[in-house]
Amino acid sequence: MFAGNSSLESEQFRLPEGLAEAMRSVLPSVAERTVAAIVAEVPAYTEVFTGGTGRKLETAVRLALGGFLELTSGAGGAAASTPMVPSLDGAYELGVGEARSGRSMDALQAAYRVGARIAWRELSTIATSGDLSPGGMARFAGLLFAYIDQLSAISVAGHADGLATTGRARQQYLDRLAYGLLTGSGPDELAVAADRAGWEPPRSLTAVIIPEARARGVLPRLDPRTLQTFEGALDLPDGRTAVLLVPDAEGPFRGPLVAGLAGLGAVLGPARPWTGVRASYLRAQRAARLDLRPTPETTVDTEQCLADLVLRSDADALDDLRAQVLAPLDGLRAPQRAKLEETLRSWLLHHGRREEIAAELFVHPQTVRYRMGQLRELYGSRLDDPRTVLELTIALGSG
């Protein structure tokens, strides 16, 4: 994958052993000067390469240059621009480590450039004092820079692989965190999962169930900490859904979230403390299953339809309740029954205030009195029973 420079390799070159030995003797000081120059010239490493980390880098530089001198002074000197396996492995791991540390390849490549300059300055001084010919100096320089370019290239590959691996690993941790949140894991377990995922917990989370096809377009507009999962997602008549867990969308921040989801067919649960977002998810799930949306594009805020959720949470029970509490009206003709149901509903709504009932129904107050007399004959004292009033309110309020 990382072939050497063919033109350089085609030219036989071998560093005299005495010269190579002289260069080996200065490698510790060359490594020390290289690290000092990197710290001074590459801001990203100003604090990183101090103490033990700096000494590890010095060792890595010394080993890499030692490998180069071994190649150029040995029988295989023609391939000196292609690092040996240990040097390649070290460069690869260096790139992986930089990715995991969150630093870009720009910083590492800058460090390689500084290292190449220091290495050439120090080693060329010895080469010159050893009477290396101009042609030999040129070949030596070409091999040294090609060697360092190869190390830089393999570090780039390591960095790319490190980013991919780190990204996949973090996404796996985020997925596990989202699953734990939806399934109701304990606060301590969730705190550990959040820490492993590198996810900063918010004050609250709001569960949003949204058509899967629209979820990706929404994410860039939301808090970067928003979690997306398909665990527990629903298959509704208009397609599969995803679940978004949106941070800190309570109080004055809820309105902008609802507005931002308008026309996307989303269902929003209430904001809950982040470790208790399962309650938000379950409410959104119930609302989605009841399908309170007049159209597939309508976004439903469950905070604005709590009564509907309560009344429609068990449709069969509600039907049974209506049949039970309205049974006294069963023997009436349909037109008469409809008028008495309408009057009873208004009576409950206006707490028996006859004038307000008459105004709402567009009838005379005496008509209201007459109808209420009929209802009292049918219900008797039950109209004064708080439980019966509650049951009638629920039954007629859903009509």
Rank of each mutant, 00 (worst) to 15 (best):
G380E: 12
Y281S: 05
E189P: 04
V61A: 09
F145L: 10
D385N: 14
D308T: 10
R371W: 03
A146P: 02
R33M: 09
T343I: 04
L177N: 06
F49D: 01
S280M: 09
A44M: 00
T343D: 02
Y92C: 02
L282A: 06
T82S: 15
G251C: 01
T298R: 11
P328G: 13
T343M: 08
V85Q: 13
W274D: 11
T275E: 12
D314I: 15
Q228N: 03
E200Q: 12
S313W: 02
R387L: 11
T125G: 08
F145Q: 11
G397F: 06
L8W: 00
A160M: 09
A288T: 11
L8P: 00
L15Y: 11
S152F: 01
G162P: 05
P187N: 14
S73I: 15
P296R: 01
L282Q: 06
A141F: 00
E58L: 01
L190Q: 11
G136R: 05
I118K: 00
A146L: 13
R62C: 11
G95M: 15
A22C: 01
Q366I: 07
L268Q: 13
R24K: 13
P270I: 07
G158N: 10
I210L: 03
L292F: 12
A141N: 00
Y173R: 13
A116M: 10
T295Q: 11
R100S: 11
E341L: 06
R117D: 14
R272Q: 03
L340Q: 07
G217L: 07
R24L: 13
R371H: 05
E41S: 13
A178I: 06
G142C: 05
A75E: 12
G54M: 03
R312S: 10
